[in-house]
Design a protein around this nucleic acid. Structure first.
Length: 351
DNA sequence: GATCCGTGGCA
DNA sequence: TTGCCAAGGAT
């Protein structure tokens, strides 16, 4: 109880102003958070920093001010707007979710955790977060911040990911029935700004006096985690084929797997033992010129090295089914993941 | 439970 | 340069 009140008091004085957040003082004045804003921000914030999300959130609510607007959009436009933010299945599920809520819930998000959990892209964390932040329901919100903060507060030595199950009931007991949403956000803010993964600022922590990890001098070593696996390096080639007017040939990636549904120039399959200059892999015979620099990029579970080649297609060339020519000045607006933008960049096609 | 799925900032 | 890490979900 003391922990709870101390943290809420800290939050009232330190709440950050964020585009999707309703300030504690406004909530006290009766202002209701916009569930659409809460949902959109929570999806974007999955495994993604506040700094990275801000600009995207602003763009999205400007382009699609309401859930109905998003439900009526084209998936292609959602993916284009999401390009660069990563974890692209989130964007596809975002669109599915918007349409589902519009169609089956009269355009209003359900308030209960269990019903939110059934929606595409919404898991245990996000369901609890929306239910409590948008609707003021009591819920145990457990994200990476909460796991870290509580593992330190109670000196929990359980390793991730099993720690989550241990922290969930603790968070449930600690969460007040008055202002549960603010409490959840306070926990996450504390983790993001004070109880940080490295060099936590224990000196300014509202829980300084009660923190078990601090007492034992092990706070910055928690939470414990299993050793990570090494990332292999895969290699591949990208072919920037242009036509006589300088347009670039693009295609859409498969619906499942890495970078699903996103656009790309022609690339080879990325493999551990692939060559960087095997022109038999080129889409057509042409005077392919290799760019000065290769592309290096790291995904969640592997490193990628990719050589980039450029050539102009003969006038007789016809693009295959599913491919299209993109004007150079329109490339920036295509649904290109960052790794593909890097390839176009070393080719001098975008800045 | 284990694996797959992006990206950018930072020590 | 390299590894770590961020408001996780789907399979």
């Amino acid at each position: 109880m003391q922990d709870t009140l101390a943290l809420l008091y800290w939050y009232d004085r330190n709440s950050r102003q964020l585009p999707w957040r309703t300030a504690p003082s406004d909530i006290l004045s009766g202002v209701k958070p916009d569930p659409y804003y809460v949902w959109l921000s929570e999806i974007m914030l999955q495994q993604t920093t506040v700094a990275a999300v801000k600009g995207y959130f602003e763009l999205f609510i400007k382009t699609w001010p309401t859930l109905a607007d998003m439900a009526n959009a084209e998936e292609e436009d959602i993916l284009k707007a999401w390009a660069g933010l990563g974890y692209y299945s989130r964007a596809r599920n975002l669109y599915k979710c918007a349409q589902f809520v519009q169609l089956h819930h009269n355009g209003r998000f359900p308030e209960e955790e269990e019903r939110l959990l059934k929606l595409p892209g919404i898991g245990p964390y996000t369901a609890a977060a929306i239910s409590t932040i948008a609707f003021g329901r009591h819920a145990a919100v457990v994200d990476g911040n909460v796991e870290r903060v509580l593992s330190r507060r109670y000196g929990l030595l359980t390793t991730l990911p099993a720690l989550k199950a241990e922290v969930k009931p603790l968070m449930g007991e600690m969460t007040p029935h008055d202002r549960p949403g603010d409490f959840a956000q306070a926990m996450m803010d504390l983790g993001a700004t004070v109880c940080t993964p490295k060099s936590p600022a224990c000196g300014i922590c509202p829980w300084l006096e009660v923190c078990e990890g601090r007492k034992q001098g092990i706070a910055d070593t928690l939470p414990r985690k299993a050793p990570k696996k090494m990332k292999p390096t895969r290699r591949g080639m990208a072919f920037l084929l242009s036509d006589e007017s300088g347009r670039i040939l693009l295609r859409k990636r498969a619906d499942k797997g890495l970078l699903a549904g996103m656009s790309e120039p022609i690339t080879t399959h990325w493999a551990d033992d692939a060559a960087l200059e095997d022109l038999t892999a080129a889409p057509i015979q042409a005077d392919w010129v290799r760019t000065e620099k290769d592309v290096k990029h790291t995904f969640t579970h592997f490193h990628l090295e990719m050589s980039v080649w450029q050539a102009q297609a003969p006038a007789t060339y016809e693009e295959p089914e599913g491919y299209w020519w993109s004007e150079q000045h329109e490339l920036e607006g295509e649904a290109l993941p960052t790794v593909m933008k890097k390839a176009l960049k070393v080719g001098g096609l975008i800045s």
